[in-house]
Amino acid sequence: MIIETHGLTKQFNGSGGCKDISLSVTEGRIFGFLGPNGAGKSTFVKTLLGLLIPTGGQARIMGQPIGNIKVRSKVGYLPELFRYHDWLTGEELLKYHAQLFHLSKGEYVKKISNVLEIVGLLGKEKQKVGTYSKGMQQRIGLAVALINDPLLIFLDEPTSALDPIGRKEVRDIIIELKKQGKTVFLNSHLLSEVESVCDEIAIINHGNLVVSGSWQDLQVGELQMEISINNYSQQIGEKLKLLAIKLEKKHNNVFLSLKNEQDVNDALKIIIENSGVITKVQTKRQSLEDLFMFWIKKEGKERC
């Protein structure tokens, strides 16, 4: 595990922050850390990075306790509230951060143009950071996070200042990082962003970890299935009703709510055995939004 936390707690005068968070992140995966605003996501990340001093629990990054200096050379970080030295040019800023990582000139010269290209700022590197738009500042922040070729990258709301094209580009960068074997810890409240790239997720609310695990593990409730059938008969309908939790029919389309994946096969078998001709099949799991709302509501009920 590249990140392991055991009861990690950071509270401010006994309240707020995050409480008793135990989770683990597998190397080479994209981990989505979700929660409403003020849930304690950034506090957790800042505690892991040694910016906040934990009030309880333990955590290890790459097998080392948090705050270990050597580990930091393999970690990249884009903070939520990104602010950079506005008197430096984009290139100088990257050079500064590269030097903080003790990269040699030969190493950073090549790396700077590489990361500038990745974040789409090539050609803008001679401009002062103070003249950059908010979106450009977020991009240069991402470049800073990548300058040391990190194994683990913490991205705290990495697309908050970007337009839809920029968001897509950042998602592509995250996927590319995964392909390179890097681990990305993505802190976000934008569910669509997390949904499209993450392998594993954790949901935090009111500072407490609500749930964590892989996508499949967290799927709860019904599976939606839409089947287009020629030769639909009453017999097919009656048998499907026995199988499904819920059935609706519109023209040639049948909408089923099933308990699990096994029922998909059984539903198709019923149609074929009863001379139905299937022209289209589509299954749909809960969206992350449904999942998120489910767990957040569940946590709310438990708190009450």
Binding site: G50, I69, Y77, F82, R83, H97, F101
Partner: peptide, 14 residues
């Protein structure tokens, strides 16, 4: 106050 140090103090420097 501005959070400028977040990215600096996560580097390998005490």
């Amino acid at each position: 106050e501005s959070g400028l140090l977040y990215t600096v103090l996560t580097k390998p420097i005490t």
